[in-house]
Amino acid sequence: MATSFSLQVSVIIAPMDVSFPVFLEEAYHPAPLSEKSPTDTFVVEVRALYKLPVNYSITSGDEKGYFIIHSSSGIVRTSKNLELEDFPVNFKVRATDSSNAVIFNEVEVKVEVIDENNFPPVFPSSLLEERLPEHSPATQIVQLKAQDNDTGRNGFLTYGILNGYRLKFRINETTGILYSTAPFDYEEEPTEYQVVVYAEDDGIPEKKRGYCTVVIKITDINDWPPVFDPVPDFSVHENVPVGFIVGKITASDRDTGDNAFVLYNLT
């Protein structure tokens, strides 16, 4: 079975009587380069139409010498490692009549460089400890802030919670503020939570993350009264001396620490 395909081709015909070289583009804007582009990376091919051969050269705009151009083909390549802070670079390419240097034309080439995502976000500390009293309403616990040494979108950070405590905690993805979402009960629920927070950049070609573990300790408040244990009947004989022990009454408190310390008094 025969197959066929079609291809659209643009053909520009230069008149033989043009008085100076004519470039195929009014200005050249090649694809952005990676900041990690090695020396001799292809940038763009600049072409001019003319009745005679032309010589190509870079005349201005590339003061730091990042680019070289082949004098016959018009192919532009990098000549050294690129420094992001120097870009974009706008330089002029000249096409000159090979037999008469006073006949020429120039075109602008604009080269941009993409900031590679070199660094992951980093928190000042990978471990934090915070305390939260039980029965506190939903509240702010701590604001986390990571740093990223990249620039632009590679350094733009959003925050999230990695582990399974999203029902108990939430984080503002922009500000990094960590909140509780409901009260905690010291006596009925876990008293410690390890919340793993991440900061993620918007990097190209891939996103990178940094992590911080926030240990949240729920503290006890005095929310339980003492409760007497069952009290038996006591009896005592007459004429016992002062200070005679009649019996012992005990009480318990579901709180902890000083909140569970019970004092007894007669009323």
Rank of each mutant, 00 (worst) to 15 (best):
K208W: 15
S73F: 08
L132P: 14
S125V: 08
F104D: 00
I221C: 03
N117T: 03
P121F: 01
T191Y: 07
A95Q: 11
P15N: 11
G160Q: 00
N259P: 04
D258P: 09
Y66G: 10
T3M: 02
Y165F: 14
I75T: 12
E238Y: 08
I218N: 09
L132W: 08
S37K: 07
A27Q: 13
E200I: 04
P121T: 00
G176A: 10
S73I: 07
P32V: 01
P15L: 02
D201A: 13
G257Y: 02
P226L: 14
L157S: 01
D202W: 06
V44Q: 15
L24S: 06
I68E: 12
P226N: 10
P226M: 08
T151Y: 12
T3W: 07
L127D: 11
L178F: 00
F20C: 05
A27L: 05
V102R: 07
R254S: 04
P241W: 01
L162N: 12
N239G: 08
Y198C: 08
N90I: 11
L127R: 02
L33P: 11
S72N: 10
D62H: 10
L33T: 10
K92H: 15
V240A: 14
F169L: 11
N149D: 09
P124S: 05
V18P: 03
Y159E: 08
P241Y: 11
P230E: 15
L266Q: 05
S99N: 09
L132Y: 11
V195R: 01
